[in-house]
């Protein structure tokens, strides 16, 4: 999707609080999976974000990190993960459901195509 639309659409990863921190409420505690404690400082979150981006093919995609106050995540109700498309006019044209079940890249792509075609959100 990024390869197909990256010239016309800005893609931005917003790294937020951990969905399944080892010491969180919904932990993933098994070897072979990312074993991450919930960062307590922005520096720690930056480090984990760096590792995440390096370990996945998202390396290279522009990315920013939410503050440790989780302000942006709260504004977008984005935890544990979520997709949005913001139109050229600064309004929300696509709000995906909350992950994991609402995290649907195909829906985002459909919204991108519609936005680029000038038809607005599907």
């Amino acid at each position: 999707m990024w390869a197909a639309h990256g010239d016309a659409v800005a893609f931005l990863v917003v790294y937020i609080r951990e969905a399944h921190a080892l010491d969180g409420r919904s932990p993933l505690r098994k070897g072979g999976l990312p074993l991450v404690e919930e960062p307590l400082t922005l520096e720690e979150r930056n480090a984990v974000a760096t590792v995440c981006l390096a370990k996945t093919a998202l390396e290279g995609m522009p990315a920013v990190v939410d503050g440790i106050d989780n302000a942006v995540e709260k504004a977008y109700a984005a935890a544990p993960d979520r997709l949005y498309l913001i139109g050229r006019d600064g309004t929300v044209v696509y709000q995906g459901g909350r992950g994991p079940f609402g995290f649907l890249p195909a829906e985002l792509e459909k919204a991108i195509r519609a936005e680029l075609a000038g038809a607005g959100s599907p």
Binding site: Y15, E18, V36, K55, R88
Partner: peptide, 22 residues
Amino acid sequence: TQVTLSSFRGKRPVALIFGSYT
């Protein structure tokens, strides 16, 4: 690098991908 969302206004749509490593 600092990114301000509103800097894209009038230029390009922005796809926001919220998530974490876990």
